[in-house]
Design a binder for these strands. Structure first.
Lengths: 152, 152
DNA sequence: GTATAATAATAGTCAGGGAAAGTCAAAAAG
DNA sequence: CTTTTTGACTTTCCCTGACTATTATTATAC
């Protein structure tokens, strides 16, 4: 069962690749293309394209409304990474972490192999020994430190 | 009577042979095929498909969740890595860990950038939130998982 | 004509239900 | 005693729908 959210996510990303990093969509149109309720689009955007993941989202309601999503315009990988590091929250679940890492690949900051290493290092499996109460904080800390090593 | 866990184990292994060493299953589906509780699948996976035995397991909860199991290809990355993974102790200090990582660079298994990431992920700084009693075990676990991702 | 009011066309929010997998300890089997 | 099996409970993630908010357009009043 392919998850609809994942399909929508990659649809948007492909569209964005074609459109040079900036797109404008209509929520209802996209929803009907994927045969889902409009609010699912909001779900995808908030879980995959939030500001802290390096995207800038604007929207407008009413007649002729739209949602525009842009890849953050960063001069260098370093800028982008600093932005991410600065805006990382305290706690990241494994899944959220993976979304971040996937974005690094999209931004051509790391390759698939490194993404694999990062995912491995921040997986629940790797952190199984850490008590659940603090696991997400530890995970965040590990991710931050790995990213720092890329900036330096 | 053959034990159920053994049956499930061999079922998964046959499936994996057919699928070129990598499968994706649904826990509930597999459980109902064998007429057992879902958590039995977890038991089989943790006792038969552990990292030590050369398997890499990932999973995801929620709608459309799955469990993926991959058999690590010992030939592709050379036996060296598998050997290292298997021979890593329970506890590694940051310093010991760095020595290992440096060796990987010397053996051309990873490049400097990856070494940086690995060191960062296993540093005391990254693991500051983890209590000292278990920190070295967690560190080892993280390193193992990162190395495993290279063997895939 | 202009100002205001109604209507239509969008998008946003939030809570809840459902669909998975994970955990852990007790019971059962060997 | 060790390994397996079970099941109650938890956690994570996805999807939906009712309700709300905002903007544009059209109708009405003056």
């Amino acid at each position: 069962m392919a998850r609809l959210s994942d399909l929508i996510e990659s649809f948007i990303k492909e569209m964005m690749d074609d459109m040079n990093g900036a797109i404008e969509i209509q929520r209802n149109e996209l929803a009907s293309r994927f045969n889902c309720v409009p609010s699912q689009i909001n779900y995808v955007i908030s879980t995959r394209f939030s500001a802290d993941k390096g995207y800038y989202v604007e929207s407008r309601r009413g007649g002729g409304g739209y949602i525009s999503i842009r890849r953050l315009n960063t001069e260098s990988a370093g800028d982008y990474l600093m932005h991410i590091i600065a805006s990382l929250g305290e706690k990241l679940t494994q899944h959220t972490c993976e979304i971040f890492i996937k974005n690094f690949v999209d931004y051509d900051i790391i390759n698939e192999q490194m993404a694999g290493i990062m995912k491995a290092a921040t997986s629940d499996k790797a952190l199984a020994g850490v008590s659940p109460e603090i696991r997400d904080e530890v995970r965040t800390n590990i991710l931050k430190n790995m990213l720092m090593s890329l900036v330096i």
